[in-house]
Amino acid sequence: MENLVLSKEKLPEMLTEIASKYALFGPIEENGVTSFKHISNSQEINLDYLRSRISPKDLIFQQTETLFTFSKGKEVKVNTPQIDEAKRVIFGIRSCDARGYSILDPVFEGKREGDYKDPFYTKKRNRSTLIGLSCNKPEVNCFCTSFDDSPASMKNVDILFTDIGEKYFIDIVTEKGKELIENLGNLFSKASEEDGEVRERVEQDAINAITRHMNTEGVVEKLEKMFNHELWQKTAMRCIGCGICTYLCPTCHCFDMQDEATLKEGARIRVWDSCMYPEYTMHASGHNPRPARMNRVRNRVYHKFSYFPKNDKIFACTGCGRCIDYCPVNIDIIDVIAKVKEAKI
């Protein structure tokens, strides 16, 4: 497909255009915290960010989701809520977060014919067009290149914007993306060969700027033999058991179901849960199969680097670095995996 460019001055115009036709989501900064929110006015958007604090997974896999509502009385009525049908555009998503969606897909959409498809996730996912934004200056804890990805990867987005100075270079990746661009009229101009070269250079510079790397070679096999290794106890000693790593992670997807009710009506809701909490595995009997933090920290690493790759042939980590950045006690997943590789068994 032919590549386009958009001058930066025209970006607000484009966003306004999108907002008038679609539900537009983008990064908004509030008190130093960037997260993806619904945008009605293009002024709100903040592109001066690198990695949103809260990953955009919450646009599709919401933190609180109502599954159905019910009423009380002789005849109980159960209603399933209307799922938001609007076509969505998610603007400014980074390649690591877009990759997070593709990791979540097999979980919620099923892998084989006949697998259960979660309607809430599937509908929102299918109706969303992702406009990616390449990272020009990766942060200290970015390591997406360790997963065959790049700061300007086109693998998981529909359209990719790359900042090449005065303008954005636009890669149109999918049919969905093409449709969106065609819908927006003639804001864009053709990309010259020079623009393409600048884009390549920007991507290469960004790749070179990534300083931390994770070597995942053979990790799955190694972990197989390490379940009872002392590394887990050692790492978990300093874990305080908060949910930061799981709540900020673009691929963590555990949830809890709860019934909330008043005297007249109620609802079953789905909320995020975290495997770092002891309540997560607590049985009604009072027995807890993961009684200590050691079991829980181990489980999180195993889920991402052993169970997931065994089931889906992909590591459930995108290299976004959020868990490293915000862990209060510096449990560094790159360091943990490096220690796994070093460990003697």
Partner: peptide, 16 residues
């Protein structure tokens, strides 16, 4: 309100 709306209830404040 502005601050509370943002809370994601990770309970890190409690655990720390």
């Amino acid at each position: 309100k502005r601050h509370f709306e943002r809370c994601i209830r990770c309970y890190a404040c409690r655990e720390a």
